[in-house]
């Protein structure tokens, strides 16, 4: 019974103290914020930022931290940290700048508490008990936001590289070429297929030549992917011609029981393109022997 009562009292006084801290920081806002900016400038943490940026950002950060202290809610801080990370990473701000800046703010807040409660050690210690967890939490939120942002950018870059390594080329109206180079695993096969299907839609392709000369080996999985790609393209109304099937791969496919007769296959890429031209109703006309140009005429 008695214990509960003291707990209640403690809770009450802690809530009061928390509000006292909030009021204190609000009251001293201009002074403390100026101090903070000065310290950061001295440490060279604000390099590359304009005056205006510094003003608005420092006000927002200062106020956001106080809201966290007051309400115990960190959603605002999280959203702001994410936005800041997005812009910060874009502008090439270093982690040192960001974390350094926040550590500085933490010190400014801390010092002002020392100043205020220097004659009441007990109250100072209670104040720090309230203040420190909030400061730590904010720091970890910001650090995590920056790490996440970096990871996101790395992911996007990897994705871009992967897309580049499997280009879908439009050679002429309604014809696409997909030269596959390198090993195909399930993930890449999916990506290839998705990309091809989307391109068929956007470029209104009717014939696709898939060249697998650059694929080192074909096992049953890869063969299945190939068949799926062909089938899916067909569902969208495009005909697929597969070229570059080496004798070894042909043998593997037959051994695996993949029905090649259902697939449109032509020996090499050049032959595939000619076949595609034929399907599209183009006629290949060689002009003047030796001139080398190939003209395509719609029949």
């Amino acid at each position: 019974m008695k214990k509960e009562k003291t707990n209640e009292q403690a809770n009450k006084s802690s809530a009061e103290l928390r509000q006292e801290l909030v009021d204190h920081f609000r009251e001293k806002r201009e002074l403390l914020r100026q101090q903070w900016v000065q310290h950061m400038t001295a440490k060279g943490l604000l390099a590359g930022l304009t005056r205006e940026d510094i003003e608005t950002e420092s006000i927002t950060i200062y106020d956001t931290c106080i809201v966290c202290l007051e309400t115990g809610e960190y959603d605002g801080a999280r959203t702001y940290a994410m936005r800041m990370a997005e812009r910060g990473v874009l502008r090439g701000m270093s982690t040192e700048q960001i974390i350094g800046g926040l550590l500085t703010l933490r010190d400014v807040y801390g010092r002002s508490l020392f100043e205020r409660y220097q004659h009441d050690m007990e109250r100072l210690s209670s104040a720090l008990d309230i203040y420190e967890p909030v400061a730590n939490k904010i720091l970890s939120i910001v650090a995590l936001a920056f790490v996440a942002e970096r990871e996101k950018i790395v992911r996007q870059q990897q994705e871009a590289i992967r897309e580049l390594s499997t280009p879908v080329l439009q050679v002429r109206d309604q014809m696409l070429i997909l030269p596959i180079i390198g090993v195909i695993d399930t993930h890449r096969a999916r990506q290839l297929t998705e990309q091809l299907l989307r391109t068929i839609r956007t470029s209104r392709a009717k014939v696709v030549v898939i060249d697998i000369t650059g694929v080192p080996g074909v096992d049953s999985k890869v063969a299945n992917h190939l068949v799926q790609t062909v089938d899916a393209s067909q569902l969208m109304g495009a005909t697929v011609i597969v070229t570059g099937i080496s004798p070894e791969i042909a043998q593997t496919l037959v051994t695996l029981g993949v029905d090649l007769t259902k697939m449109n296959t032509v020996g090499d890429l050049q032959g595939g393109i000619e076949e595609a031209d034929h399907l599209l109703g183009y006629r290949v006309v060689r002009e003047e022997p030796g001139n080398g140009f190939i003209h395509n005429k719609k029949v």
Partner: peptide, 10 residues
């Protein structure tokens, strides 16, 4: 037939 749908069907 949409690209996603074609993919899903196969």
């Amino acid at each position: 037939i949409q690209p996603e749908v074609a993919f899903s069907m196969v």
